[in-house]
Amino acid sequence: MEFSGAVDIPASREQVFAFVTDPNKVGGCGPGVESIEVIDPTHFRAKAKVGVGFITARFVVDLEIAEQQPPDMAIIKAHGQAPGSAVDALGRMNLVDGPEPGTTTMLWAAEVSISGMIASVGSRLVEGTANKMIGQTFDCVRAKIVAGR
């Protein structure tokens, strides 16, 4: 599944970049994240309870900043597993000047693969749910940057 979008954030490119590459900051925006463990500056492990409504699964997710060109671009890889299910994602983010001076537009694209039982029995719900979670994540990123500015 491929998703993409653009978010305007009233902050500088550096501020946005710093936020989204800091696991302790961006971690709080990941869907259902309950804890984040920093392994090294580019590797993190998150525990997350994700789902819709009361239908949830607990995932352990390994995240890696696979590539970065501060403050313009970053590629993040995620590999998460829950009993019987797995999720793999490749997210790419490009930061460009926003419509207003001092703002930044984050252009993002994500390729998400969901495997196993959730993909088998929940196929009618998976795409919409993934799309929504991604949207919520970026809304949260925007809100936190604005709040912390």
């Binding site: 789902g51 009361f54 239908i55 949830t56 009993p83 959730i118 029995v121 929940g122």
Partner: peptide, 20 residues
């Protein structure tokens, strides 16, 4: 979790997609 009949809830519990 409220159980009222259970024909939606039980299959989810059995698939372990819900664990109240």
């Amino acid at each position: 979790k409220v159980l009222s009949g259970g024909y939606s809830l039980l299959p989810l519990l059995k698939l372990r997609l819900a664990q109240p």
